[in-house]
Design a protein around this nucleic acid. Structure first.
Lengths: 331, 331
DNA sequence: CTGTTAGCGCCTTCAT
DNA sequence: ATGAAGGCGCTAACAG
C-alpha cells in the first residue's frame, strides 16, 4: 500500500499525495479531503523507511542510560519518551550497565539505526571516546545528569545541592557527618556529590570523615557495617549519594540495631518516587528526573533542527528538598 | 559514505560490498578482508533506512507498557531491550499511562515507525481494539503480563500464585485476610489476582473480606485508613495486588499506629528490587520481570521470522516467593 | 495548485 | 566468485 496506489485510487499524482501528508497547505481543500479519505479507507500508512532514506531524517532519538533498574533513570526515560513523542520523534533506548565496553557497542548500534540524535548519560564525560565518535559522526547529542563544560548537559548542580544538605544537617546539630557512595570512578555524579560534601564540611569548619565507598550492585554491606560498628567514631548522619543506597543503608543499620533517625540520620539523593512511600519516608534531594529527560529531548530536537547550542549554556535545573523522616535534630 | 563509495575505494562492485556484510561466505576471503578493512577506515556504516526499504524489515520492535514509574515494567523493558539487542533488534518503547486513548495513539505511532513486531501490556486483552488493528496490519505481537487465551501471552499465573499466598497465610494462622488492589477495571492482572484471593479463601473455608480498591496513582489513603480504623473487623493480613501498593499500605498502617508485621501482616506482588531493600523487607510474590521481557522479545522475533506461535501455547513462568519480613505467624 | 522526474542506499535476482 | 541492473516508497526540485 504505497503512495502510488493512493495516487491511482484518487486519480492524482503521487507527488500530490505526498504533499497532502507533508505540506497540506499547498493542496486544494477538495483534493486534500479526497486523498485523506481514500488513504484512510485503504488503511494507508506512509512508509517511514522510505521517508527516512529520502530525507535523511529518521525521527528517532537514541537513548543510552546506565540502567533502568534505578528508577531515577526509568523516570528520566519516560520524560524523554514523552517529549520526543510530542515532537514527532520515537526513541530507541539501550542500557550500558555502567560499562564502557557496552557504551561503545550501544552507540554503535544506535548509529547503525540511523538515529538523528542522542540523549545519554555516560560514566565520564571528560574522557569518553564515544562522545568523540558522535561529534565525528556529526550526530547531535545531549548529556543527561552528567556535568561537563565541554558538552551540552542537562542536570542539576549536585555539588551545591549536597553542600546545602551538609548545611542543613549542621543546622540540625550534626557534626559527625559521613558520606556513603558508589565507586567514584563509576560516576561523575558521585564525584560531584562527594565534592559537595567536602565543600560543605569545610565551610562548616568540620573535619570530613573518610568516604564510605561501596560497589552498590553487589552485596557488600560489610563495609557499611564495619563503619557503623566503631561506636566511638560513628557518624550521627550519613549522606548517601543516591536513594537506593540510602534505603539499603537504613536497612543495614537497622540490622546492627541502629534505627533511623533515632540513632542515625540519613539523607538520600534523587527523590525516586518509592523512597517517599516507605516508612520512614526518606529525606532526600529531589531531582526533577522526568523534567531532565524532557529538557534533554527538547535540546536534541532543537539541535537536529539546526539550532546551535553552546556547551555549558544550559543552566542547572532546580532540585527540591524532601523533608522526609530520616533526619533527627540533635541537642 | 555509501556502499558505492566503498566499492570505488576497493575496486569491487557494490554488490560485492553488500555481500560482505550480508552473505560473507559468498565472498572470497581476500576480497572480504579488503572490503572490511577499507570500510572500517572509511567509517562506513550500512544505512538502515535503505536496508529496511529494500528488505521490508526494520529490525525494530515496538514496546507499549503502562508506565515506567512502576519498576516492574522498567525491569521488563530492560529485559526486552537486552534480548532484542542480542537478536539484532532495536526497540521503540512508549508508555500508555493505562489510558485506552494513549494506547491507540501509541500503536499508531509505532506502526508508522514501521516496527516489525510488538511487545505490549494492555488494559484489557479481551476487548482491545488495538490488538485487532495489529492483526489486521499483520504485525506480530506478544502480550506481556496479560493473560488471554486468544493471544500469545508471556506472564505468570497470577491467580494460582495469589491462591498460594492465601494458603501460606492460613498456614501461619491468619483467618481475617483482606485484599487491597488498584481499580480492577484498569488491569486484568488485578482481576486475576483478586480471583486468586477469592479461590484461596474459598478453598480454606474462609469468608472473603470486601475488596479494598484504591486508585493507586492518587493519594486516597483514606479508603485504607477507614478499613483499618474498625478495630473489630480489622484484617490480620492484607494481600496487595502489587509491591508499590504494599509499601504504601505499610506506611499508611504505621500512621495509624499499626506496625508491620506485629499488628498486621502484608504481602505484595511483583518482587520489585527495591522492596527487598527496605526494612522490613517486603514478603512478596516475585515475578521474573526481566525474564518475561526477554521471553516476550524472543517470541516476537520468532514470529517475525515466520514461526507460527499458537495463542495460549506459552506456559506461565514460575514465580518465587520472597519470604521477607512482613508476615507474622499467629497463635 | 498539480504533475514529471530523479534519486536517497541498499539488496537481489540474473548473468558471467 | 563477482558484476550489472532494477526497484523498495517517498520527497524535492522543476515545470507547467
Amino acid at each position: 500500500m504505497s503512495i502510488l496506489r493512493i495516487a491511482e485510487l484518487t486519480g492524482v499524482s503521487p507527488a500530490t499525495v505526498s504533499r497532502v501528508f507533508n505540506r497540506p497547505e499547498q493542496v486544494s481543500e477538495t483534493t486534500r479531503e479526497l486523498v485523506i479519505r481514500v488513504a484512510n479507507e485503504a488503511g494507508y500508512r506512509p512508509n517511514s523507511a522510505a521517508r527516512t532514506l529520502r530525507t535523511q531524517r529518521s525521527y528517532v532519538i537514541g537513548v543510552l542510560l546506565p540502567t533502568l533498574r534505578n528508577p531515577v533513570f526509568a523516570e528520566c526515560l519516560e520524560g524523554i519518551a514523552q517529549r520526543a513523542l510530542e515532537g514527532g520523534y520515537g526513541i530507541m533506548p539501550i542500557s550500558s550497565g555502567y560499562e564502557a565496553e557496552q557504551e561503545r557497542r550501544a552507540i554503535s548500534a544506535l548509529l547503525a539505526a540511523n538515529v538523528d540524535g542522542l540523549v545519554l548519560t555516560v560514566t565520564d564525560p571528560e574522557h569518553c571516546p564515544v562522545l568523540a565518535d558522535l561529534s565525528k559522526a556529526g550526530v547531535p547529542y545531549v548529556l543527561a545528569y552528567n556535568q561537563s563544560p565541554s558538552h551540552v548537559c542537562v542536570g542539576v548542580n549536585s555539588e551545591s545541592e549536597v553542600t546545602a544538605v551538609v548545611r542543613k544537617l549542621v543546622a540540625n546539630g550534626h557534626r559527625q557527618i559521613a558520606m556513603l557512595s558508589g565507586h567514584l570512578a563509576a560516576s561523575d555524579r558521585a564525584r560531584s556529590r562527594y565534592q559537595g560534601y567536602l565543600n560543605g564540611m569545610a565551610a562548616a569548619g568540620l573535619t570530613a570523615m573518610p568516604l564510605i565507598e561501596v560497589s552498590f550492585m553487589n552485596e557488600d554491606d560489610r563495609t557499611v557495617q564495619s563503619v557503623l560498628a566503631k561506636s566511638n567514631s560513628r557518624p550521627s548522619a550519613v549522606i548517601c549519594s543516591n536513594d537506593l543506597l540510602a534505603l539499603r543503608f537504613i536497612r543495614c543499620a537497622k540490622e546492627l540495631g541502629l534505627s533511623t533517625p533515632q540513632d542515625i540520620s540519613v539523607v538520600g539523593f534523587d527523590g525516586i518516587a518509592v523512597s517517599a512511600e516507605v516508612s520512614p519516608a526518606l529525606s532526600t534531594v529531589v531531582q526533577p528526573s522526568a523534567a531532565i529527560g524532557r529538557r534533554a529531548a527538547e535540546l536534541v530536537m532543537a539541535q537536529i533542527d539546526g539550532d546551535l547550542i553552546a556547551a555549558g549554556s544550559e543552566p542547572p535545573m532546580p532540585c527540591s528538598f524532601r523533608k522526609g523522616e530520616t533526619i533527627r535534630a540533635l541537642g
